[in-house]
Design a binder for these strands. Structure first.
Lengths: 236, 236
DNA sequence: CGCAGACTTGAATCTCCTCAAGCTTGGTGG
DNA sequence: CCACCAAGCTTGAGGAGATTCAAGTCTGCG
């Protein structure tokens, strides 16, 4: 269903850091070659190992990036609007390393990878933006690695809750943005273990009701979690 | 001990992918601002959290990148000649996320980060190369993440041995490039557990003698390890 | 020969996983 | 309106895997 990119989407995409500084002519040429599609929940968008034909941009909804090996699989990241994903594969013209599926109903823009590479070569503003994006993505992965290797699952959960609280505005109460099974996979644990971990965090002032989290003792939780900007701060 | 960069090092550095395509004038200006230093083994080069004043290049020896939190620490990567490290921090002018120390006697070139950023802005060949480097580094991290989340420690060790065998030329026998304590940390396990893991791999045709590894039944080990290009192949 | 550092082994413990069963909830059809 | 069902989550028991701590072995070097 190749419909072309509706002009109404241009401003949202243009506001993305990665497209913000580029030449208008180049931007429009990228947009002309791309298109937008709406997907229902739980639909596979790409499979790891596939050639990277398109740069993907989530316009609304949310996307799960995950990987499999030997019958196991694991969630590696969530992509939320408005952001690109699998940029590195697009740039290198290499196969995807992760699979992607919609978590909910999502609008996704698709831009042919070869167009991205072509514009990259002639638009230095775009190249600069891609370097920013890639270096940020790399640093995020380093942080995720540190989270995984230096912390126990209980500590990872505690720090996740603090980050999520921050992302939701900082109030004591907030909702988990997806199911607990997937959260468990993201955090590198089983759903059963996540359940028990939530119970263990009660001792540090966390109460859970369905997907509703309340942090009743901020100080206590922070003392236990010991968040570090070099692991948990998304901005640096 | 600021001695400036000896011209004899220029060719080696120039042969790095990241410097190969750039303008000669820019290359020389970078080299003029940089310098080279030789460090004994087990010397700290940078500490996580420090501002990223220099882009580092390993000319000889090898470097351990590691991170700490709450009294624990973990090795995250090894850098071997000739390669750069902490490029992302340099580009973003952000604090280091990892610490670095020499594993053995090492020569390291240091180039002021602000020079790198300045040349980046005016040399599109250099910008292109940096994007290549960053996207490759990112994909390596994704693979390391998959290795860690999808495999047991025994499987990680088995696949590590196969990769190391390949890196050493493919012969049945080869030497581990550093101590087992650090290997354990790299693989996300304790030294004790690594010892036992080596013992368990005997069943799949691996014999260990000090740092000498012999793979006596290649087929058997590969069947157990089930290596995947999307995790273990460094080239894609 | 003896010592220091690196590695291994053993035993107890803890964490996490698996499997199985029970619970809750929201939706569907009677 | 309610009984039922399926999906998601929780709980429990048992076991596998990993960690810790302590002691023992090996090796290279003085």
């Amino acid at each position: 269903m190749r419909l072309g990119m509706p002009e109404s989407d241009f401003p949202d995409i243009r506001s993305l850091e990665i497209f913000a500084e580029m030449d208008q002519v180049h931007f429009e040429s990228l947009m002309r070659g791309g298109y937008v599609q709406t997907f229902p929940p739980h639909v596979d968008l790409i499979a790891e190992g596939d050639p990277s034909d398109f740069l993907h941009i989530v316009m609304s909804g949310s996307i799960d990036l995950f990987a499999s090996w030997n019958g196991r699989d694991s969630s590696l990241a969530t992509v939320r609007p408005i952001a690109t994903f699998i940029l590195a594969a697009t740039i290198r013209d290499a196969p995807y390393l992760m699979s992607a599926r919609t978590l909910e109903k999502s609008r996704v823009a698709l831009i042919p990878s070869q167009d991205v590479r072509a514009v990259f070569d002639v638009d230095s503003g775009f190249a600069r933006a891609i370097v920013n994006e890639l270096s940020q993505a790399y640093r995020r992965k380093i942080k995720a690695m540190k989270d995984l290797k230096l912390r126990t699952s209980l500590e990872r959960l505690a720090n996740y809750l603090l980050r999520e609280q921050d992302r939701c505005g900082g109030a004591a109460g907030f909702d988990l943005p997806f199911g607990k099974a997937r959260l468990a996979s993201l955090l590198g644990m089983t759903p059963e273990n996540l359940s028990r971990a939530f119970r263990n965090l009660q001792a540090y002032g966390v109460t859970v009701n369905g997907s509703r989290i309340s942090i009743t003792d901020q100080r206590d939780l922070e003392t236990f979690a010991a968040p570090s900007p070099l692991i948990d701060d998304d901005r640096i």
